[in-house]
Design a protein around this nucleic acid. Structure first.
Lengths: 290, 290
DNA sequence: CTAAAAAATGAAAAGATTTCAATTTTTCAC
DNA sequence: GTGAAAAATTGAAATCTTTTCATTTTTTAG
């Protein structure tokens, strides 16, 4: 017996006619008849008496009906849950972000989204690129902000360029408007521990800048503060600098190297409705790149 | 989505592996995969992440699971009800009887049945042949005792013969051991109202005994009492006389006319388990006719 | 008694599920 | 990193279920 069998039984029991039940369910009377009789042979007893005044429940049918109703009701609430989820009356989106997106973009994303879809809950997970990528792969988050170069094999939609800047102590000034790569070669660097900012590591690697670095810190603020105090120079994406009250000199680099910030999702074709909506919302609001 | 889809989803979610779920459900891993992916495309979002450490629920899957469990649990209790019914741990039998069976046979039938199947409830409806037949046709009772001649088109299993006897006041005696039909022809009859005992009516009709009857009573006791007081003679099935404290002469009739008592059921091939068991129980205990 | 309506029936068609065989992906040990 | 083993996926064919169609039977109402 399937849910449809139950539905047929319930409808017939309620309405007392095979033909009318067929109309209601969009089936032929024959289908109803077959369904009921296969139900009866599966049960081993009959549930409906075909008599004058239409079709009525047998004693057993009468006892069975509440059980059938219980199943149909619980399925109904399941269907309702699905409908709510698809209609964005319910749902949850878990987003992985790195700190600069977290502080600069997320508040606006969240408030505009929440206004539009008040039923959807948003959970934010902040971490490094690697952590965000890991969370995406493991389903901890549905969507993740990443730089394109750090996304690896995770599909990512590029949103905008974020220029890498060179951060110097106040005491230092470059020769021109831009910092030449060669100018940096002999300076001590303050670098973030491990690959907290993979784009910068990549840039350094690409330009064969072997960095002499005595300080390995974790967060952007500390990095800049160490530069401020004259312990070295550092590279920092522009977006990060928004968050930091700094007293340093900031210069763009020759060739304007950028990190490309994108929004990543493991399976672009199969997002939950709330996730898809958030994904589109983010692209609409932040996509600058064609 | 069907109940099986739900079952597949639940099993996979519980055990975290398609292959193991396939083993448990007796399906191939491929079937599981197809089932889940068709579920996901129907839902519009994915419910399982295929990752390291096996398969885990997505956020949506996590939310969906309780709903799925609710449906499966209510179906489980439906299945349990069916099993109980089939296993005779539950169930009800409604039996229609006429008075002589009610008083003579039913107590023994009921007590031996109840001893064997204590979970099954028995309901007794007492009435005339016509009422019992009506109840059978309308599903008021599951089984009905009837005389074969009164069953009409209702299938009936003959159980035993019950001889018709002639009841005479003490003051009257027949010529021999048997009463000849002709002997009755000139006597006043006390008859039961309408066709309360169709067999007797039939017998009278068959033998072209037009009965001169001034008293039309309903119950057997009253009938016999009127005979006792000399208001006429009557015919009475033997079984009925068991119930009556009488002070009358009783004689068999020439040719030993009988009513045949049987057990009737509307659909012999499709009885509820408790009904079938009662049916067989009755036949075992009361069938004398081959 | 007949006509109309409702239900049942059996065979064929349509649809769904399951399996099979082959492929891809993932995991684990070396 | 490589390769073997395990797990999951895929598409096509096979199987099984459900539905319809056409017909028959049963029931009801005039």
């Amino acid at each position: 017996m399937t849910l449809l069998t139950y539905q047929v039984f319930k409808t017939v029991a309620d309405i007392g006619s095979f033909r009318k039940a067929a109309d209601i369910l969009g089936l032929t009377p024959s289908a109803i008849s077959h369904a009921i009789s296969s139900m009866e042979s599966e049960l081993g007893f009959s549930v409906l008496t075909r008599s004058k005044n239409g079709v009525t429940l047998t004693n057993y049918g009468e006892h069975l009906l509440p059980y059938v109703n219980a199943v149909l009701n619980s399925d109904e609430s399941l269907q309702q849950f699905i409908a709510d989820t698809n209609g964005l009356k319910a749902g949850k989106v878990k987003i992985g972000v790195f700190s600069s997106v977290c502080t600069n973009w997320l508040p606006q994303i969240m408030s505009s989204f929440e206004e539009k879809y008040p039923g959807v809950k948003i959970e934010v997970y902040q971490g490094s690129y690697d952590e965000v990528a890991f969370w995406l792969k493991n389903g901890v988050v549905d969507l993740g902000f990443l730089s394109v170069s750090s996304a690896g094999d995770i599909p990512i939609e590029p949103l905008c360029k974020d220029p890498l800047l060179c951060v110097l102590p106040k005491s230092m000034k470059p020769n021109g408007e831009y910092i030449e790569i060669e100018e940096m070669r002999n300076h001590s660097f303050v670098t973030q521990r491990e690959c907290t900012d993979a784009d910068i590591q990549n840039f350094l690697k690409e330009n064969k800048l072997t960095v002499q670095s005595n300080y390995h810190v974790v967060d952007d603020l500390s990095t800049v503060k160490l530069v401020e105090k004259g312990f070295g120079i550092c590279l920092m994406p522009k977006l990060c600098m928004n968050d930091i009250p700094y007293d340093v000199n900031i210069y763009p680099l020759r060739g304007n190297p950028c990190r490309i910030i994108g929004i990543a999702v493991m399976n672009r074709d199969f997002m939950a409705p709330a996730v898809r909506t958030m994904y589109n919302h983010i692209i609409q609001n932040y996509k600058e790149l064609t």
